[in-house]
Design a protein around this nucleic acid. Structure first.
Lengths: 108, 108
DNA sequence: AACTAATATGTCGAATATGACATAAATAAG
DNA sequence: CTTATTTATGTCATATTCGACATATTAGTT
């Protein structure tokens, strides 16, 4: 796991199962968090790339600025569904999302 | 959209926004549903491939058989998070999920 | 410094997803 | 046609996520 994701986990205090420490995550748990962080980071980069504010993106998908902030911060209390909706609204295609998860696309 | 997905939408009566008919979906809405169906179909195929019952998969991720059935049926009331957790528990890698969304992997 | 725009953080009731459980329907084997 | 197994469907109380709103913090400008 890269430094950025590690940092996000530490700061957010991601809670998965009974593991108190992120070093004790199962491979599945780690992959799950990894995917979430990839997507949330892509939302942030794509939004910036388009010069949108969090407020603009929020309105565009019927959400609120605070939720976008939490989304981009890797908050565990944000669903993948909301993340995907945000990504799609930013013009990201299903194929691009696939590439991101494949590792062919730089998340930053 | 292929026949299988179209059929799933019709049967499940997927509700998105105010569009009563799936033909009136925005591109984002359609892509969103498309992704969900891809993932749910992959769960079903991967589970069958491994010879697991829905009950077995459910226990493996701390869920219940009924939710796995709904998941595989494309029920809108199932989160992507649960779908991804199921996929990962079945041994599917992040990379494979990416390939699926990219279209390089056959969902069936 | 002050002022402004953007982002982060926390909290609330409402909406949605959760596992559980029951039970129906399908599928398969004898 | 039974019997057993698996999958589908519906309901319920609980848990989680939702948008909203307020407010804090940060970043940039003058």
């Amino acid at each position: 796991m890269d430094k950025k994701k590690r940092k996000q986990l530490e700061e957010k205090g991601f809670r998965v199962g009974s593991a108190a420490d992120f070093l004790e995550l199962t491979p599945e748990e780690e992959a799950y968090i990894d995917i979430r962080l990839d997507i949330s980071n892509m939302v942030k980069s794509q939004r910036s790339k388009r010069g949108w504010t969090q407020e603009q993106l929020a309105r565009a998908i019927g959400s609120s600025q605070s939720r976008i902030a939490k989304l981009e911060g890797g908050d565990p209390g944000i669903s993948m569904d909301l993340m995907i909706k945000a990504l799609l609204r930013l013009g990201t295609s299903k194929k691009q999302i696939g590439k991101l998860l494949e590792g062919e696309l730089e998340p930053a």
